[in-house]
Design a protein around this nucleic acid. Structure first.
Lengths: 224, 224
DNA sequence: GTCTATAACTAGATAGAC
DNA sequence: GTCTATCTAGTTATAGAC
């Protein structure tokens, strides 16, 4: 029961930050839920902000480790020269993130909401941390996508990968946003493989679209 | 200079909420920046939360009015039976939102960040407000998309429209997220028409993908 | 309508007993 | 390591003068 206090605080803080927001969550709430003393947060982490950083550090690494591990495996399979198919790249990029949301560790969904929040709170030091962890991944995935989609310009690829991240980020926030936007008569399946498959299909087709050119006369639309 | 105090508060609050977050922004900050007295917020709006709601009310309507207006025009053009092309539907859905970000009214970008934040703050009353305004739009756009994509099941269409919203939401948050994730050696063009064109192309191709089926043996991927 | 002053409260952090 | 007690500083909201 020695280290459990620290872990309990980490878990409860993650849940509360995601639920109420960083600013709206007090250390008193956290320590009360974790069954710890108010002073424990400052004892273990030093400050409220350091606690937040510890939460990020605990989760983000796993997703990216999985992504990079899968990419290693695919690249070893493909050998030096061959490009990895786009849909495989999309899948290994997307799947670890989505698995965190539902399956896997409990509290994953809490963390995802917390992560989404960090994008929107620009003042925090967290941005540097998150940016750094993403840099590792993008520096490996971008060349892989470029090889798989040689006909695309760097600019176009850049945007489309962002679109991919956008769809993923949206799906990671869980069904709440969707319930919020949709009439939601449709039942929300918890089948994560089906969601991954749908997302991979959508994104892959989007990535395979022809390069966009704004001609002199206006928009040239090329539809399948 | 009578109504200006109210408007100034609205503007500055929108900017500060977006920049620092709702909880992290104090009425003192807002009134100081707006050149108003601390008590002015409670005088004009009643409370801090009512001020936040007023901000939402001011902006959301414009985007959806534009969308519905464009849809009216396209449906009038197409006549009763004919389906509106997918890329046109995507464009009129996507463009008003993106125009708010850069062009148009100043402070639009602030509001978008604020809107994104509301998705992640589930405790607020704002969700009902936002949901209601989205319902109007989805109830018109969903049948239009269904007509344009008759081969898709309701489930599949439901998900893909969510994917579209996801990409859009991501792009609406501006370039900050992108700067955060990407190595960002690439210069961020402010050409909104080019962004719209790229987004429309990506999404349209994604929407046109074949229906996803998880067969007995695993994932059947159909790539263009 | 706009101000000052202040009430009533809560926050994060820490000192020091155990 | 864990507690209580407390400090300092911040918050929203309001009462009442002008």
């Amino acid at each position: 029961m020695v280290q459990d206090t620290k872990t309990d605080i980490l878990d409860e803080a993650e849940a509360l930050f995601a639920e109420k927001g960083y600013e709206a969550t007090s250390l008193r709430m956290i320590t009360a839920k974790a069954g710890a003393n108010l002073a424990a947060v400052n004892y273990y982490f030093g400050s409220k902000e350091a606690l937040l950083e510890a939460i990020y550090e605990r989760r983000i690494g796993r997703i990216n480790d999985e992504r990079l591990g899968s990419l290693d495996a695919l690249e070893a399979d493909a050998g030096g020269g061959k490009a990895i198919p786009v849909e495989n790249l999309v899948e290994i990029f997307v799947k670890p993130a989505l698995q965190i949301v539902r399956g896997g560790s409990p509290g994953g969904q809490n963390f995802i909401r917390l992560l989404g929040r960090s994008y929107l709170e620009p003042s925090h030091v967290l941005q540097d941390k998150v940016r750094h962890m993403y840099e590792e991944v993008t520096h490996r995935f971008k060349p892989a996508f470029a090889k798989a989609l040689p006909e695309l310009s760097e600019q176009e690829l850049y945007w489309r990968l962002h679109f991919m991240v956008g769809v993923l980020a949206y799906c990671m926030t869980g069904t709440e946003m969707m319930r919020m936007i949709a009439s939601s008569k449709i039942e929300h399946s918890d089948d994560i493989d089906l969601l991954v498959a749908r997302l991979v299909s959508f994104v892959t087709h989007g990535l395979y679209a022809d390069e966009v050119n704004l001609g002199t006369g206006g928009l040239e639309k090329q539809v399948v």
